[in-house]
Design a protein around this nucleic acid. Structure first.
Length: 723
DNA sequence: GCAAGGTC
């Protein structure tokens, strides 16, 4: 009897094998995929890994239309680019399954893990999933894994598997259909093909970015005044701020300055406060991504990639975690002893090793599958790490060391200066005891403003009291790091996907700007179009409703297929309405594209910040926009041989198919059929063969060819273009 | 060609 245990990823397969083996497991490899053989209690066990999802949903038909609901599970390498590595894993599981008579799923204990196990069994191993047992563990320690092995769940959790499958299907139905609908609308209106996309997570993410953009656009700066007192103490010049920070009435500000100038100024009160600052909690992925962004300017995607590399080399623990807690039985002392071998960490590690008890700070968040990110104690060889890897490694190590250190002690000081019954405040702050800041201080900013000693009641030498005019500022644009945080707060996406969803928004041309994210006119228009036609896709409520349905499916109060059918019905209606308005939606998408580009070019033209656009310029811009809009709405491909009007690309109202018609319609009835695929590029040429119809260029992917529009012309056969 | 979710 042989049992095959399937793990979610290679590293976990190894850990399970080492935990269950009596002695050491035998590491083997098949199709270059590592797996393990071992025996326990006389039973032969094989442990083999998946690599996340090995199967994904794909349409059965290869056509590009919508609505589309007929989908099935296929290997990821058949459906997605760059997934060919998964082929070997599927093959290996299939081969190993032939040797096995018992099956155990040991994927992460969550809905996705259940789906990974379920599809691996069903489609890779060809095994009925109801025949498999389930290992249930929440930590990868030998103790936990052995306990899970001796307390196997008799079946996989079908509630969880069904909930996960429903999530996959629902996301596919909504996301793919609406992405196709958007792309199709734009193509109908412009004749241009451009991938537009949206989905349950992309939609609301772009929406909150758009909202910020609108807040900024609509922001009216309000002037206000601040009042400052310049004073001198022991030859040192200091600035105190008026107790009321913002004064919106200039006359009031003037009056205060005049009155305060009369003096006399003296120290009315001195307030000193001490505060304990505890070390920050261990890194979950989101916190690491934010910290790396503020410390090094790394994008969340880059940080995850680096953390993954460090993990693959065994230097740090698994990065895709939302836990802020370290494993209960991690051997801290071993890790510290090891870190002490690196000169830069030696003093801190030694200090900690001298402690009797090592108790790390913990955060609130937890993750059933993985602990917080920590250094394993494995050390990088000299020169092994790139600068970026070194930075992230340093961040993780210092954060880890800080967890065990003493709190920092901070002191803040407030000196209140009274001048003719107006109060000004001098603020100072300093660190009294560094504590954990010794090791982590380079990554946190605390003010050090040390004030000279003041005595209660002492007179103050005032140099100047003045008012300064300021303006209220619009809210700041999101940065990649703050987008990830906002997504976390809204509960959309997962720790493993948020960074890549943000990348998708960049790739679609919806947003731009590396540090300050700006929504492009296209992004603005996509949200607007969706809000008008399918508001749920830009709302976080869609995620909430998915979550509720998954809960119900898991609890067996709702049937998975019923949930899927409901979604299909709902979407069928939504998509039919969308399709009816498709051309208008597409035109609206296009208008903004042109308007936005024009605005941008004028911004480039104006040099001075304050420079106004002249009425002549405005007029010129307006005309340019109209020209561009007109030409894009109806792509002109040539002159009508019958009436001399423009021949333009039009779309059949009923079928949506494109054709070329005369702009003088209905007076002139000249039309030509058009190929339905590819971009249409006017050439300005008239066919030399038939002498009356225009020649257009069709661009399809990398291919380009010229064709005469006249069906009866001998030249109508496609001819390859020069390029 | 399109989602979101795992993973290398």
């Amino acid at each position: 009897m042989t049992t095959l245990i399937i793990a979610e990823k290679p590293n976990v397969a190894r850990k399970i094998a080492y935990a269950l083996a009596e002695g050491k497991p035998i590491k083997k490899s098949l199709n270059k995929v590592p797996y393990y053989e071992l025996t326990r209690d006389g039973e032969r066990i094989i442990v083999a890994p998946a690599v996340g999802h090995l199967f994904t949903l794909a349409p059965k038909a290869k056509t590009w239309g919508y609505p589309i609901f007929d989908i099935h599970w296929v290997p990821v390498y058949e459906a997605e680019k760059g997934k060919s590595y998964a082929r070997d894993y599927v093959k290996t599981l299939a081969q190993l399954a032939k040797q096995a008579s018992e099956f155990v799923i040991a994927c992460d204990y969550d809905t996705e893990g259940e789906v990974i196990g379920y599809t691996a069994l069903k489609y890779a191993c060809g095994i009925d999933p109801s025949k498999a047992k389930r290992m249930k563990f929440s930590a990868l320690t030998k103790k936990d894994l052995l306990k899970a092995w001796y307390n196997l769940e008799p079946t996989i959790n079908f509630g969880m598997a069904d909930a996960g499958i429903a999530r996959h299907v629902l996301d596919w139905y909504w996301g793919v259909n609406l992405s196709r609908a958007l792309s199709s609308a734009l193509r109908r209106a412009s004749g241009k093909w451009m991938v537009l996309s949206t989905g349950r997570v992309q939609g609301p993410t772009l929406k909150f970015l758009v909202e910020r953009e609108k807040e900024i656009a609509n922001f009216k700066p309000t002037p206000y005044w601040v009042i400052k007192m310049l004073l001198e103490k022991n030859g040192e010049k200091l600035t105190a701020n008026y107790e009321k920070e913002k004064i919106f009435d200039e006359n009031e500000a003037k009056r205060i300055v005049e009155e305060a100038k009369k003096g006399p100024a003296f120290v009315e009160a001195i307030e000193v406060k001490q505060q304990k600052r505890n070390p920050p909690h261990p890194f979950d992925l989101g916190t690491l991504q934010r910290e790396a962004y503020s410390a090094f300017g790394y994008s969340p995607k880059k940080t995850l990639e680096i953390a993954q590399k460090l993990y693959e080399r065994g230097l740090t623990s698994y990065p895709r975690t939302s836990s802020q807690k370290l494993p209960k039985n991690l051997n801290f002392r071993n890790i510290l002893q090891s870190l002490a071998k690196l000169p830069e960490y030696k003093p801190f590690a030694h200090e900690l090793l001298g402690k009797e008890r090592l108790k790390p700070v913990e955060g609130k968040k937890d993750d059933p599958a993985h602990p917080a990110i920590y250094p394993t104690g494995e050390l990088p060889k000299h020169g092994e790490l790139t600068k970026d890897e070194q930075n992230i490694y340093d961040l993780v190590v210092r954060r880890f060391l800080a967890l065990f250190m003493e709190p920092a002690l901070r002191e803040s000081m407030k000196v209140v200066i009274n001048s003719n019954n107006h109060r000004f405040i001098l603020s100072g702050a300093r660190t009294l005891k560094e504590g954990w800041l010794k090791v982590y201080g380079r990554y946190v900013k605390f003010d050090e403003v040390i004030l000279p000693p003041f005595k209660d009641g002492e007179p103050v030498k005032v140099l100047q009291i003045k008012r300064e005019k300021k303006k209220t500022k619009p809210p700041a644009r999101y940065s990649p790091a703050s987008v990830i945080k906002k997504m976390e707060d809204l509960g959309i996406g997962t720790k493993a996907t948020r960074a890549q969803i943000l990348e998708t928004l960049y790739n679609r041309g919806y947003i731009e700007g590396k540090k300050k994210i700006k929504v492009t006119p296209l992004g603005m228009k996509v949200v607007e179009a969706l809000e008008n036609s399918v508001p749920s896709i830009v709302s976080v409520e869609l995620t909430r409703s998915f979550e509720e349905k998954m809960e119900e499916i898991m609890a067996r109060r709702m049937d998975k297929d019923r949930v899927i059918e409901d979604a299909k019905e709902q979407l069928t209606k939504i998509l039919a309405e969308f399709k009816a308005k498709e051309l208008d939606i597409g035109r609206a998408l296009l208008e903004k594209l042109i308007g936005g580009e024009t605005k941008k070019s004028t911004a480039k033209r104006s040099t001075g910040k304050e420079k106004e656009i002249s009425p002549e310029e405005q007029d010129e811009i307006k005309k340019a926009v109209e020209r561009e809009e007109k030409s894009k709405k109806h792509l002109v491909v040539g002159k009508c041989p019958k009436c001399g009007g423009d021949l333009v690309v039009r779309y059949n109202r009923r079928t949506g198919k494109r054709f070329v018609g005369c702009s003088s319609w209905p007076e002139c009835n000249v039309t030509y059929p058009l190929l339905q695929r590819g971009e249409i590029i006017p050439t300005g040429k008239v066919c030399p063969e038939c002498g009356n119809a225009p020649i257009v260029k069709i661009k399809e992917g990398n291919r380009e060819y010229e064709v005469c529009l006249n069906m009866n012309c001998n030249r109508k056969r496609w001819q390859r273009g020069a390029k």
